[in-house]
Write a protein that binds this DNA or RNA. Structure first.
Lengths: 193, 193
DNA sequence: ATCACCCTTCCGAACGTTCGTCAGTATATA
DNA sequence: TATATACTGACGAACGTTCGGAAGGGTGAT
């Protein structure tokens, strides 16, 4: 299906160069068609972009839900740390995450609201999914319960974003250093005395 | 001086809409001149952008150095937390920081190296400035010295980036929540037992 | 098996617009 | 008179988009 090839190429270009930095001809060249042919599949550039948004949103969310579902019985320390690791790995080989970060931080101005709807939905869902997991590990005494599940979750998502940022910079030894340090202090803060 | 007006307007537009999303005519309109007149002051768009980069880099760096210099004798807890607060405040009213975040995360592709030179210089300097401050507070027993000054600094800069990210999303109650949570757990991890 | 028909997909050509940039000229200041 | 600044006008290039038509496959009637 050409539509999917177009969306995939679009995702790659958008994630590397943003909305304005990506032209319809670049996408078309990738697929091996002329730019006019894209309009057979998508009404216009905005619509294409928003469809990619929707797909990526679904991708990211299903990754998270999938991870939680298949790891929720593990010790919370492994669970959280592995989540960071897997997201890091995912970013390295998967353009969805790169695209996602780009539009989360700097969506194209004229599509701000429509793009951010997905972003906020993702962020809310992320919190909604993590709070009960962390809450459970508190009530079971794995980690200190003085902190509160909501606060611990918020801080963990902060660590996640800090790692994301370092991924954007590109240096892998830098990234490793931040991951180690952030996790070390986060976990130290979370632990029972 | 018109040059400065041009740079200021350019900084605003670049920070809001990025390099590609900003046109010379928008900048010129802001200043009240024709776009061609910009070329009296700057060779081309790239040169203008890079000059803004340089200025902003200097701005950000001098903010940090200034803060450190006038706060380094305070307790480390106040010192670090106030740094987060002041950067938050700075972001709200100062377009330098917004521009800085944008080009740090997603510099224009064809200027990647030249822009990232500033970014890396900033990041290195930031670490270089914080390590001794945190190290000193460790040797004085304010915080646990098992952690190591480098690791504590790396984690703190992670917290900072996590806060930056939440600033980009725009919601102020979200930002407050993250700031509180991230700081709470970071400080809990940093404290002596 | 053939024909006519439709529908999907793609392309050539062109549209109007905007972009960054250059050359030449006017105006004001010193 | 020299210099700095801003102007008018125009340029080629790239952009997103539209239109008309060509090629192909599928379907149903003959």
């Amino acid at each position: 299906m050409t539509s999917n090839q177009i969306k995939e190429s679009a995702r790659n270009h958008f994630s590397e160069n943003g909305y304005d930095g990506t032209s319809m001809s670049q996408i078309a060249d990738d697929v091996g068609i002329k730019k006019q042919s894209i309009y057979t599949h998508f009404k216009d550039k905005d619509k294409l972009f928003l469809e990619v948004c929707k797909d990526v949103f679904a991708d990211e969310l299903s990754f998270v839900m999938n991870f939680i579902d298949s790891n929720k019985t593990r010790p919370i320390e492994d669970f959280l740390f592995d989540f960071l690791l897997q997201y890091k790995e995912r970013y390295a080989k998967n353009n969805s995450t790169k695209f996602w970060l780009r539009i989360s931080f700097f969506p194209p101005t004229h599509l701000y609201e429509q793009a951010m709807k997905y972003v906020y939905e993702y962020l809310d869902k992320l919190e909604e999914l993590f709070v009960p997991v962390i809450g459970k590990s508190m009530s079971e005494g794995e980690i200190s319960s003085i902190i509160g599940a909501e606060r611990a979750t918020a801080a963990f998502l902060g660590v996640l974003d800090g790692v994301f940022v370092e991924m954007l910079y590109g240096g892998s030894e830098r990234l490793q250093k931040r991951l180690d340090a952030s996790w070390y202090l986060f976990w130290r803060g979370l632990s029972n005395d």
